[in-house]
Amino acid sequence: MSETITFTIDGKEVSAQPGQTIMQAADAAGIYIPRLCAFEGLVPHGSCRVCTVMVNGRAQAACTQPVADGIVVENDTEKLLAIRRDIIEMLFVEGNHYCMFCEKSGNCELQALAYRFGIAAPKYPYLFPKREIDATHPDIFIDRNRCVLCGRCVRASRDVDGKGVFEFVGRGPQKRVAVNAEANLADTDLKTSDKAVEVCPVGAILRKRVGYAVPVGRRRYDHKPIGSDIEQAASKK
């Protein structure tokens, strides 16, 4: 099967292979669609809705929606930017995101999205929820204050590591990441080399004794917005 599909994103013609998602096709074309739960190599989840695009006038998650011939996709519009900005702001007020002492700061994808969207402060009231920390594991900890429920750890542990260490429990505001053990993280077979530890976009799952390894000014998003690697890769072609 090598038939090529063509469609447009914000008026620009993009070609793709059947079976690709809109996000995969956009990445290849150097068009960045903002995302949080999507991660290359993991099954798309479609849960964070940051990658929402309009497909023929209907809102769809670009990470799960397959390409089709002739579809008209809107990505970089005022309306979608407002929706995405609202989602990011809600994620900030729904958790306890103390960037000032978080080891992930500067390399955090949630923070980087807020920077890219130029958010100085969320417009919603902070909820200050009470969340649990699990530091029982000798090498890894979970700080649920920072968790955005993207499900990357759940998918990575289940599909890549083949362990199923993490799973969601509860619904709505009570939803949280739980560990598959009698009690705590220490009782699982999670290892620091697991994909599940690496993929956390925020500082919710971190390796211990790493600390603030990279100085301010040399971290991933200190100078370049998230997504600029995708945009630049295309401009070099």
């Binding site: 978080c102 700061s105 920077y115 200190d222 100078h223 917005p225």
Partner: peptide, 10 residues
């Protein structure tokens, strides 16, 4: 209108 590098949370 602050440039990208001047909006930081840390």
């Amino acid at each position: 209108a602050l440039p990208y590098e001047l909006i930081k949370y840390d």
